[in-house]
Amino acid sequence: MREGIHDSSSLFDLQHLQSLKFADNRYYDSQIPSAIGKPANLRYLNLSRNGFWGQIPIGISHLIKLTVLDLSENYLELKNPNLSMLVQNLTELKELYFDYVNLSAEKGGDWCKEISSSLPHLRALSLYSTSLAKLTSLSMIRLDYTNLHSPVPAFFANF
């Protein structure tokens, strides 16, 4: 077990920082620091494959210039803040990678509505092995007029 990065890190005082790739560090048993939202000019944030666990901090929603957010392959969940609270200010986001993020607290299709209404510039969305709400009662999926240019995600088969 390695120690993670802490709120007191001077890294978060770099106000002109635009890109932060802090991936593949394997900081198991640590959380994403709440101070992650301090670098106001951050456009690219990659915290993937670190072994972070727990709640995604609300501070990420303060990074209003973000165009790329990658939180993949950690042990993260969204409860409070929920997805709506997290993405409502991230209107410049073009790429969102939430592979393995637990979204099971999101109700039904609300996660999809929040993403489509809050992220108008989104071009890439990755939800590989994402724990969505258990939709065992799902009997209909409507995809008409969606202009799909790729195969329907395989996880639809599990509903």
Rank of each mutant, 00 (worst) to 15 (best):
G51W: 05
L90G: 12
L138G: 04
L119Y: 15
R2I: 03
I36D: 00
P151I: 13
L138C: 11
L63M: 07
N102H: 02
W53C: 14
S61K: 04
A105T: 09
N80M: 09
G37Q: 08
M1C: 08
S9Y: 04
T91G: 08
A105P: 04
L66A: 07
G59K: 09
N82A: 07
T136V: 12
H149N: 15
I32Q: 07
E95D: 02
I56M: 01
E73N: 12
S137H: 09
A154L: 14
A23L: 03
D7A: 05
N147V: 05
L45C: 03
L71T: 00
S116H: 01
I36S: 00
R142G: 05
L90T: 10
L76Y: 02
S116Y: 01
S116L: 11
S129R: 12
D99A: 12
G37I: 15
S131M: 11
K94D: 13
F12M: 10
E3C: 13
T91S: 14
F52Q: 03
M140E: 14
V87A: 01
H121P: 13
N41T: 04
E106Y: 13
L66R: 04
A40G: 05
L132F: 14
H62Y: 05
P57V: 03
R49V: 02
A154H: 15
T146H: 03
N89D: 04
A105D: 08
G54E: 11
I64Y: 14
K107D: 02
G4C: 09
G54C: 10
Q15Y: 12
G4M: 10
S131K: 07
L71V: 03
P57H: 01
V101M: 03
L69P: 01
A124Y: 08
M85P: 00
K21N: 14
S104A: 08
L14T: 05
V87E: 00
Y27L: 15
S34Q: 07
K21F: 11
L93N: 07
S9V: 09
Y145L: 12
A157D: 14
I141V: 11
I60F: 10
N41Q: 10
K38T: 06
F12I: 11
N41F: 04
G59D: 07
D70S: 02
F22V: 13
L63P: 12
